[in-house]
């Protein structure tokens, strides 16, 4: 069992969970993920590692409450525990000295981008972080990102902070701040990664994305995580999750992520009223 050390909502619908998982914390590297189960009957879901502390033996994930498992994770209280935290899985994000690196994060990817930016900075890169979201109230960890970046940029859909619009504005923003990154790394929702890769392709900037297909085991055993990269099938859990954004078959990925749309609402529809009633009666 893995103990919950911290659990809170950091911005609306976005949760932070810190878990005691010393084996994972000892080996974790930027860009890797864990698979967890919220309870014994639970599904296994992958979440990126947003931070870790090898000395304390803790691992932090940041996730959006989107369905049955994330819902249960969001409700976890400190000092309770969950049955599975396994990892670190997947390959680490490649950290070399590239020159100027633009780190783009959206949604949960703002969190998982933090250790990547930190490592790139430590390697001696010039690091620009760009966070993208619907509105400024959805941004978090701004101070932490600032501490590891040479420059920070925001884009909001409603214009409440930074540039207004979305990632497609990247070319004018780069012109505006007079930067030409040597590499772009994008973490977050599939649309952000797809659009981001679309705008950097004509600019001929190497672009790396962290893919998030459906996964079960995370060790290469089931093949549900297969993605097409440059026309070749890869298992995202073991061959990725980072891939060249210009080679990804995005339509297929978006399609495959929808496989269980109809089924996924079933557990959400169960209110568990009966369970609560029995518990209230001490049974």
């Amino acid at each position: 069992m893995f103990k919950v050390v911290a659990s809170r909502m950091i911005v609306p619908n976005m949760h932070l969970l810190t878990l005691e998982a010393p084996n994972v914390a000892r080996e974790a590297q930027p860009g890797q993920f864990v698979i967890l189960r919220a309870e014994e009957e639970g599904e296994r879901i992958p979440l990126s590692i947003a931070d870790w502390d090898a000395d304390l033996g803790t691992v932090t994930v940041i996730f959006m409450n989107v369905g049955s498992t994330t819902n249960r994770l969001a409700a976890l209280q400190r000092e309770t525990s969950i049955p599975t935290v396994v990892g670190p899985l997947g390959n680490a994000t490649e950290i070399e000295k590239y020159g100027t690196v633009l780190c783009v994060g959206g949604c949960y990817g703002i969190g998982s981008m933090f250790p990547i930016a930190r490592a790139l900075k430590e390697k001696g890169n010039r690091v620009i972080t760009l966070v993208e979201g619907r509105s400024s109230y959805l941004f978090y960890w701004e101070e932490r990102l600032k501490a590891v970046s040479d420059k920070t940029i925001q884009i909001t859909r409603d214009g409440t902070k930074g540039y207004q619009g979305h990632i497609s504005r990247l070319p004018d923003i780069l012109k505006d701040i007079d930067e030409k990154p040597d590499r772009v790394i994008i973490n977050g929702c599939t649309f952000l990664m797809k659009r981001g890769s679309d705008v950097t392709r004509p600019m001929e900037i190497d672009t790396w994305v962290s893919l998030n297909p459906i996964m079960i085991d995370g060790t290469g055993m089931c093949g549900v995580c297969r993605v097409s990269i440059g026309g070749e099938t890869k298992f995202a859990c073991v061959d990725g999750p980072d891939f060249d954004g210009h080679q990804v078959n995005w339509d297929e990925l978006l399609q495959r992520r929808k496989t269980y749309m109809t089924e996924e609402v079933v557990p959400l529809r169960t209110s568990r009223c009966e369970e609560h009633r029995l518990r209230a009666q001490g049974k």
């Binding site: 079960i216 055993m221 496989t259 557990p267």
Partner: peptide, 26 residues
């Protein structure tokens, strides 16, 4: 599906008991 995925959903994750067990099977 691969056979592993199909069988894992059913056996390890107990998909045939969905939704008591949360891993979906079509």
């Amino acid at each position: 599906y691969s056979a592993n995925e199909y069988l894992t959903r059913m056996n390890l994750m107990k998909g045939f008991l969905f939704p008591e067990y949360h891993t979906p099977i079509k």
